[in-house]
Amino acid sequence: MTHLDALEHRSVHILREAYANFRQLCMLWSIGKDSTVLLWLARKAFFGHVPFPLVHIDTSYKIPEMIAYRDRLVAEWGLNLVYGQHQEALAAGRTFPLGAVDRLTCCGLLKTEALARTLSGEGARFRFNHATGAYERDPNTEAYTGVIVGARADEEGSRSKERYFSPRSTRNQWDVGEQPPEFWQQYKTEFAPGTHVRIHPLLDWTELNIWQYIAQESIPVVSLYFDQGQGTRYRSLGCAPCTAPIASTARTVEDIVGELETGALAHVAERSGRAQDAADGGGLESLRRGGYM
């Protein structure tokens, strides 16, 4: 068994534990490479199906290719996609750089708060109707109690402290210092009313593993990850105003694997193109304590 096989099997095991234990279960799909691998692993775990909704937080500032790619896969793979959006903040113009708020406030509203409200059911949820090919209001407003997330431990400091099953308080918050023990593939699948559990099947995967697996399985990813001839590509995807490409001439999945294997990017942080991390003093920890992915 290869290391990639072992990673795949462990992630599949975790996804099945999540499905067996959480009645209101969803998976966050950011459209990025990690959560798309996660989506693929769900199809592995459930033999071609994804038996729970995929939740996408649409800030309305995502790069347009991302939304086009999302809607294409939703139709092709018959996915149950639900998106949430902070419509009040958008209507009030409380966004960066157009409105009078900084990057972190914008992230806090359009992502963290939008996510919390979508998960709890307070915020509007829009569900793709495969019969009409359009999004419509989701009748399900129950709070999700299990939320599958594509966080990886090697991505940045705060994520390295995560458990596979990580409890969140009634106020959506993460208590880093008071985490439950986790051993022998037994996870925190029981939870008090009002709280929920974040589930991290990709915790042990590295950025290189992700690209190796995308290559092995021929998983479709957004074209933004590849150099289109300008000598730049996106390494991590987010909102257009706060995400910058890196210098790279990698045009294919194999090129990216090669770039990572040779260590060409070894001393550049994966999320270095994400301006909100720098605004958070470098770590995502304070964003994440408040509920950010």
Binding site: D154, E156, G157, S158, S160, E270, A278, G282, G283, E285
Partner: peptide, 12 residues
């Protein structure tokens, strides 16, 4: 190091 945005981790 985390504070400088480099991917090295606190717990691993």
């Amino acid at each position: 190091e985390r504070d400088q945005g480099i991917t090295i981790d606190a717990a691993r």
